[in-house]
Design a binder for these strands. Structure first.
Length: 150
DNA sequence: TCTGTTATTGCGC
DNA sequence: GCGCAATAACAGA
């Protein structure tokens, strides 16, 4: 199984993606880097033209991965909606603090939509830059509003 | 095995 | 409205 690597632009950031077939191994954010081929779903999703990354999945969803159940619960959050750390924790039968840790260690942001998990009174956090989370949520909200109008 | 760290929350003042 | 303790799980020493 060959692992491929690509970079795509997102605002000021470059998103590096490591994947093979439909399985995404790692998603990381970099300040610099030359754009190269990434799965088309990624670009469509980031530009708000598509509301799903299907059929892409993440290694974080496979059995045996730490936080497997947490990532699955987050994966189920619908496009344009958000859940709090507590709500996710309740679904998984764990502690909200643990959800925060799981999100920080999330090997594949975007695929696991960790940006849809927010703090009760604010956005919560995002590594390496809260702006990425903010932008993603704005794109999703905008698209959902447009869909609602039509 | 122990300690430090963490993308939170809710209570008390 | 702010500060702080409670609290779970991993990484590194």
């Amino acid at each position: 199984m060959e692992i491929r690597s690509g970079i795509c632009r997102f605002g000021l950031w470059r998103i590096r993606i490591l994947w093979s077939e439909n399985l995404v191994h790692k998603v990381s954010f970099e300040r610099f880097g030359e754009e190269s081929y990434v799965p088309p779903q990624i670009k469509l999703f980031l530009s708000g033209k598509k509301d799903t990354l299907s059929p892409l999945t993440s290694v974080a969803l496979t059995d045996g991965h730490p936080y497997n159940n947490i990532y699955r619960a987050v994966f189920e959050i619908p496009y344009g909606e958000t859940k709090t750390y507590s709500e996710v924790a309740e679904i998984c039968g764990t502690h909200h603090r643990t959800v925060g840790i799981a999100m920080k260690r999330n090997p594949t942001p975007l695929i696991i939509p960790c940006h849809r998990v927010v703090s009760k009174n604010s956005l919560g956090g995002f590594t390496p830059d809260i702006m990425i989370k903010k932008s993603l949520l704005e794109i999703e909200k905008k698209k959902r509003n447009l869909a609602g109008l039509s």
